[in-house]
């Protein structure tokens, strides 16, 4: 055997990618490029004024909303409905979810009903809600309440089903009371899933506010968007949609904040 000559070269690095780095500057840059393209496209007529208004027109729609004070009226009316509906839906959802998660009798009675109602689009119930709750605030709040209630119930009892049984065993082995186990083990263990469900129900609530305000709403972002749509005033339509998505962003941020505070034991 002849002597073999060896090539020495460094082992190539193959572990890049599939990791997110914090590139904070990218999203504003993308946003600004998007705005410029939008402006140029609508100005030179490449994008028809039927398809998109100029960015400046949307800005004017915002300005009008602001100076007339309508912004506060619309956002205020919607926020009231959103907060009330979401809070009540979440409150009852957590209570019912815990009951189903903890008591087999309740589960046997309620889980099938919840599963049956959950997929029904709440918007299809709109006419029924008008008959039950009238055309006032009650039916609007209830649409959001019902829309958030069922996903919450299912998320909560799913979360309880997923609580590590060995931790409950541990609690029992130390003779902890049922109430202590529920409060100190089951509840905190299901909290992450409950909080991440908040993101979903907050989005559902914002989607439903538009439907809720289809009915006899004089004020509200949903009513404003609906009005703009029926008037074919797409500048105002866009302004309303931007406000809705801002509401979504704010809700998301608040939930993120709550997660940071309540789940600081999770290294995130």
């Amino acid at each position: 055997m002849g002597k073999k000559k060896y090539d020495y070269k460094p082992v190539p690095f193959r572990g890049s990618g599939f990791q997110f780095k914090n590139n904070y500057w990218i999203s504003p840059v993308v946003f600004i490029i998007f705005l410029i393209l939008w402006h140029v496209g609508t100005t030179i007529g490449f994008i028809s004024n039927l398809v998109l208004p100029k960015p400046a027109e949307v800005l004017i729609a915002f300005h009008d909303l602001y100076v007339t004070g309508d912004l506060y009226l619309h956002v205020g009316a919607s926020l009231k409905r959103l907060i009330l509906g979401w809070t009540l839906g979440t409150f009852f959802g957590i209570i019912l979810g815990f009951s189903i998660g903890l008591f087999s009798l309740v589960r046997a009675g309620l889980a099938p009903i919840v599963a049956a109602i959950f997929p029904v689009p709440k918007i299809a119930l709109l006419p029924l809600f008008i008959i039950w709750f009238g055309i006032g605030e009650l039916s609007k709040v209830n649409i959001i309440l019902f829309g958030t209630l069922f996903p919450t119930i299912i998320a909560v009892y799913g979360a309880i089903d997923n609580v590590d049984r060995s931790l409950i065993r541990m609690g029992q082995s130390f003779n902890l009371s049922w109430f202590s186990i529920t409060r100190k083990i089951v509840f905190p263990a299901s909290l992450p899933a409950i909080l991440s469900n908040f993101r979903i129900t907050a989005a559902i609530a914002i989607i439903l506010i538009v439907a809720a305000e289809l009915i006899a709403a004089e004020k509200g972002i949903g009513a404003y968007v609906q009005m703009a749509g029926s008037l074919f005033a797409i500048d105002r339509l866009l302004a309303g949609i931007i406000i809705l998505s801002c509401l979504g962003l704010i809700a998301n941020w608040l939930i993120g904040f709550a997660e940071k505070k309540l789940l600081k034991w999770r290294n995130l």
């Binding site: 541990m170 082995s173 003779n175 083990i185 905190p188 263990a189 789940l263 034991w265």
Partner: peptide
């Protein structure tokens, strides 16, 4: 306080409680 007491293979600590609080858990009742 608890005649028959376990020590578990997987430790079974509550991740949302500190060391001290995990011990406190079994005394609180």
């Amino acid at each position: 306080l608890n005649p028959l007491t376990y020590i578990f293979q997987d430790f079974s600590l509550l991740p949302w409680r500190t060391v001290e609080e995990n011990i406190s858990l079994v005394l609180e009742d």
